[in-house]
Design a protein around this nucleic acid. Structure first.
Lengths: 134, 134
DNA sequence: ATCTTGTTGGAAACGGTTTTCGTTGTAAAG
DNA sequence: CTTTACAACGAAAACCGTTTCCAACAAGAT
């Protein structure tokens, strides 16, 4: 077996296809983009299943997900499992994972100072990468 | 005239209604919530117009907008015009505007270090405020 | 081989937002 | 004050990404 999803009773061909694709691509991509790639390589996986599998993987911590300013969700095979943020190229989706311990502390402290609990934060940096700038 | 929107050739009753409402409420609210409030007070403003007016105001820098993790857009009459971030209560929408000069610098430096240009970042902190925690 | 039940996927539903297009009414010109 | 031009309105429809439905399917256990 190629690779299994934690807490997934059954390993199906479709999930293997999604996992295989995720291992090949780089950067954040939308569920629909991933689905199109699967269609292009004749992988026979439904869009619904792509969404479900990605959600499973997110829950399992196997992939990261972010959202574009417009709200659509982006997915990426996740290197480091610790909490971290992203520097994403608006053009090509190329991603740099960055950690900012100071920022984490700052965010939590700000929340605490105002009496907020159950705190969570989002921090993403978008820009144009050097390659796309030309 | 109560208040005009910059670059808006015509001042209509509907826009005045939206502006009036925004002056009364506090915290981030969705376009739909604002529309419901207008309906409740018999202001006779269409949902479409609420969206259009809010967009005009965002473009004019008169209101801030953020997005919930789910992607829906939130609007708020903007106090300070400098760049800043928000601490938002998931329950009631209560908002605290916070500035984080150190974070700004950190984000820009991170981007520059990786050759990214045309940089922009989003940072929002979500939590449950003290009042809603009970 | 059979059975159980998690999984699949096309179609339909969903929810927020945007567009369309005929109507309305503002504001300026006459 | 009347006319005129066109910005703005708004109900309905289109959009778009995502989720739900449900009947058919198939992975893994017995």
């Amino acid at each position: 077996m190629t690779q299994a999803i934690p807490n997934a009773p059954r390993n199906t061909r479709q999930r293997a296809e999604v996992l295989a694709l995720l291992r090949e691509v780089e950067g954040f991509l939308t569920a629909q983009q991933l689905h199109q790639m699967l269609v292009a390589r004749e992988a026979r996986v439904g869009l619904t299943t792509v969404y479900r599998t990605l959600q499973l993987l997110v829950d399992a911590g196997e992939v990261d997900s972010t959202r574009l300013p417009g709200g659509e969700q982006l997915f990426r095979r996740c290197g480091q499992s610790r909490h971290h943020h992203h520097l994403v190229c608006r053009q090509c989706g190329r991603t740099v994972e960055i950690a900012g311990p100071a920022v984490e502390r700052w965010a939590d402290e700000m929340a605490a100072r105002h009496g907020f609990t159950d705190v969570q934060h989002t921090l993403e940096i978008f820009g144009t990468c050097a390659a796309c700038a030309r």
